[in-house]
């Protein structure tokens, strides 16, 4: 168990009714990494986080956190989390809530240091009901850290923060990695992933569409964007070098790592009316990668 990776996801599939939220997703995260799950709203990031924490029952796949099942890992205090639908109790003081959670873990983050790290100085005596949105978010971070767990899962941790708050938060997150914590955080902000993570996993349509160091992903996605008018029955899957596909009306847009190869394959399959090829900016390419509406990730079948 000592050598088990911080997180190992194999073939994870999660369905909500007939909707496939996560589609055969596999991901291994070694200890000590800081990983951004980058994707648009609805891409499946939160579903992955919730599955990792045992908050939902996957249709298929296996999940191991530091060699344990999700529920066992949570019970053992191996993981701390900031959830999208997590919250704080009413009629309690911040210090009481933090104390309760710290005591529930086998180990605890020293309180003085926790206060500094989470940036909740002066809030311990405050009633929870009197906190601002940003303060709540920092208290929730303090709860995630309270037991000094080796693995931290943060689902859109900066969503309620202003620009300044977000930047301060990034510094905190980088500090966690320096202390040896494995940090996995979901975000739809490219700048956040860029500023904090040493590995970026881009999720779209419930699948991993790009995975690598920040530099690698940047290199991989900053290929070319090809767009043309496609007949509705035109097949857009299985085209070589394509990293993302989207359709908007009659226009099909493909992001490719190798425009040459992709264009050859496309031409072999038919005409390319209104063809347009442009160099994708990073922002463009990632946006295209993570846009879920009409996106078919690599290799997906329709």
């Amino acid at each position: 168990m000592e050598s088990a990776p911080a997180l190992e996801i194999r073939g994870l599939t999660v369905r909500y009714g007939s909707t496939v939220a996560v589609d055969d997703l596999s991901l291994t995260i070694p200890r000590g990494q800081t990983v951004a799950l980058l994707g648009a709203n609805g891409a499946g990031k939160s579903t992955v986080v919730n599955a990792v924490l045992g908050l939902l029952n996957p249709a298929a796949g296996s999940l191991q956190l530091l060699g344990r099942d999700p529920r066992d890992a949570v019970r053992a205090g191996s993981v701390g989390a900031m959830l999208q639908h997590g919250g704080l109790p009413t009629e309690a003081r911040v210090g009481e809530v933090i104390d309760l959670v710290r005591r529930s873990f086998p180990t605890a983050w020293p309180l003085d240091d926790l206060v500094v790290t989470a940036g909740i100085d002066g809030l311990l005596g405050r009633p929870v009901d009197a906190l601002s949105g940003g303060q709540r978010q920092r208290v929730l971070l303090a709860l995630a850290l309270a037991g000094a767990p080796p693995l931290l899962l943060l689902d859109e941790p900066t969503s309620a923060m202003d620009v300044e708050g977000r930047r301060a938060f990034w510094t905190t997150m980088r500090g966690l990695a320096d202390r040896g914590h494995t940090v996995v955080f979901a975000t739809h902000h490219l700048d956040e992933a860029d500023a904090v993570a040493d590995r970026v996993v881009v999720v779209a349509g419930g699948r991993v569409v790009a995975d690598g160091t920040t530099a690698e992903v940047k290199a991989g996605v900053s290929g070319r964007t090809i767009s043309f008018t496609a007949a509705p029955d035109r097949r857009l899957d299985g085209i070589p070098a394509v990293t993302a596909v989207s359709r908007e009306g009659a226009t099909a847009t493909l992001v490719t790592a190798d425009a040459d190869t992709t264009l050859r394959a496309l031409l072999a399959d038919g005409g390319l009316p209104d063809l347009e090829v442009r160099g994708a900016t990073l922002e463009d390419a990632v946006l295209s990668l993570i846009s879920t509406r009409g996106t078919t990730p690599m290799g997906a079948t329709r």
Partner: peptide, 18 residues
């Protein structure tokens, strides 16, 4: 019901408290 609505029960679920 209130603790569910506030998200507190969900938060507690990701601590070791059974």
């Amino acid at each position: 019901s209130f603790d569910r609505a506030s998200g507190w029960l969900r938060q507690l679920r990701v601590t070791p408290v059974p």
